[in-house]
Amino acid sequence: MNIFGRCLAIATVAFACAIAGIYVHKLSPPYAALSVDLIRSVSGVIGTLFAIVLGLLVSSSYATFNSHQADFDSLVSAVANIDFLLKHFPDESDQPRLLLKRMVHRLLERYWPDKNGRSLGEVNYNHLSNDVAEIMAINNAAEKFKNISRDDLNSFREFSSKFVGIQSNIIRSLSSEMPALLLDVVFGWACLLFFLYGCISVGNLLEVFFLLLGVIAIASANFLLLELTNPYQGIFKVSSAAFDLLLDSMIQDPEQSSKPSATSN
């Protein structure tokens, strides 16, 4: 089920609980009238718990989203530094720089597949092993450059290690999603809360309208949680602008540059 489907399901269940509460009120109005103070007290406790936990979840999800953005900024910095070091050896570094650029293209296709009309697939350590192999190939090629200093080689290894470490952190973060049971419990509190609100409501049109507004707010909170914990799809996505700018500054791929001329002929 996609994010909008989950939010719609939560909104539907919460609103159904509110309507059920209204029917309970209408079936036994004397008992509902006598229990108003108790219902308000219980709903106050549940509402406070729900607000505290929901606030913590949104804050944690936003921190996770910012962490992913920071990781990608650091990843771009590592790749840019490797490319910058390769530029110091213009007569020997064309092939390693092309290999590096093609790896950046694959990173964009892996984490932002919607640019190519595809959906995000599972990202795992197999992807990282392929990147490690190519980074090692770039380092091995750099070791054969003429007049390369030991400091340059150490810099290559440092930025390569940083690249692998950041990628590993990104993959690990993607694998540790928010537990579904936690969300079920929290939004179960919301459904119970709306049931209690319905129990002290007489069910006129205005009250039903305000209950509907509350349900929409609950669904939007769930939408924020799901969007922020899935930072590579949906509306709120980690920006790929840094990678796009990096690609513009990297070496021109002869295969891509030859495509327009081939089509023109």
Rank of each mutant, 00 (worst) to 15 (best):
S74N: 06
V53C: 12
A80K: 13
S74H: 03
D131M: 09
V104G: 06
G121V: 09
Y23W: 03
L98R: 12
I138F: 03
Y23T: 04
G55Q: 10
L38F: 10
F84Q: 07
V24K: 10
L128S: 15
D83T: 02
K144E: 07
A70E: 07
Q95N: 10
K115C: 05
D71E: 04
L75G: 01
L57M: 14
S77N: 01
D73N: 13
Y111I: 00
F84I: 02
E92G: 02
G21S: 14
V53W: 15
P96I: 06
H127Y: 15
V36G: 00
A80P: 08
L54F: 10
L107Y: 03
V76D: 01
T48V: 15
Y23N: 01
S41Q: 04
V104C: 10
F84A: 09
A142K: 05
L100C: 06
L108W: 03
V45Q: 01
S61R: 07
V53F: 11
I135F: 07
I135H: 05
V132L: 11
A51D: 09
H88N: 06
I19D: 08
S74F: 01
A133Y: 02
H68N: 04
P30K: 04
A137M: 06
R118H: 14
I52P: 08
T48N: 11
F65Q: 05
K26C: 03
I46A: 12
L99E: 09
L99P: 00
L86W: 01
D37F: 10
L38Q: 10
R110G: 05
L100Y: 04
L86S: 07
R97S: 06
Q69L: 00
L99Q: 03
V42M: 07
F50Q: 05
H105R: 13
D37C: 06
R40H: 01
L120C: 12
D94R: 13
Y31R: 08
A33Y: 04
P90Y: 12
I82F: 07
V58E: 09
E92T: 03
L57K: 09
L85A: 13
G44I: 04
D71N: 11
P29F: 01
H105L: 06
L27H: 08
A133S: 12
D71A: 04
I46E: 04
D114Q: 14
R97I: 06
V104H: 04
N124P: 14
H105N: 08
L98N: 00
G55Y: 13
G44V: 03
L38H: 09
D114K: 11
A51H: 08
A63K: 12
L34D: 12
V123P: 14
S74T: 12
G121Q: 13
H88I: 00
D71V: 02
V42T: 06
A78S: 12
L108C: 10
D94M: 09
N126E: 15
H88P: 00
I82M: 06
D114S: 14
N140I: 11
L120E: 08
S60Q: 14
G55L: 11
G47Y: 08
